[in-house]
């Protein structure tokens, strides 16, 4: 990934900042440039997502791409956030045997990857099982 391509998205990657349409109130993540429902009359503003949601589906990666050898096996999931948007994310701090569809999860700040020993470190959101509500 080019360095500017990473830092342009830092707000959304670090802090789950998406967009909300002022006219129809739809919330988008990753951020969009215009509202597909309202088109020209829509106006988007920053919207900070709380980072709570549940697992919609998942897969377990046992044959990882380059750079992820040390992490495998790991879980990639689609998480539906409380506010509605769905995102693809790694699910960490969960054993591959304990993950299930519908599992409540919360966002966590982790390293996503790094460009070797001397390159940039890419940080961003991942999700982990949420503690049980008391």
């Amino acid at each position: 990934m080019s360095i500017p391509r990473f830092w342009r998205n830092i707000k959304s990657r670090y802090d789950l900042i998406g967009k909300q349409c002022k006219s129809c109130k739809s919330i988008y993540f990753p951020p969009r440039n215009f509202c597909p429902k309202c088109r020209r009359i829509g106006e988007l503003e920053d919207y900070k997502l709380k980072g709570k949601g549940e697992v919609v589906t998942y897969t377990i990666i046992r044959t990882p791409p380059d750079g992820f050898d040390m992490v495998s096996p790991y879980i990639m999931g689609i998480v539906e956030l409380e506010e509605g948007p769905m995102l693809t994310t790694q699910i960490v701090d969960a054993d591959v045997n304990e993950i299930y569809i519908g599992m409540p999860v919360e966002r966590v700040f982790r390293k996503i990857g790094e460009d070797g020993d001397a390159g940039l470190i890419y940080y961003g959101y991942k999700f982990r099982p949420a503690p049980k509500e008391e």
């Binding site: 700040f109 996503i112 940080y123």
Partner: peptide, 16 residues
């Protein structure tokens, strides 16, 4: 620390 954790990720979690 986990393989995807470092002083920065720990700092962020504590700060939040």
């Amino acid at each position: 620390a986990g393989i995807d954790e470092d002083a920065a990720t720990i700092a962020v979690e504590a700060a939040r």
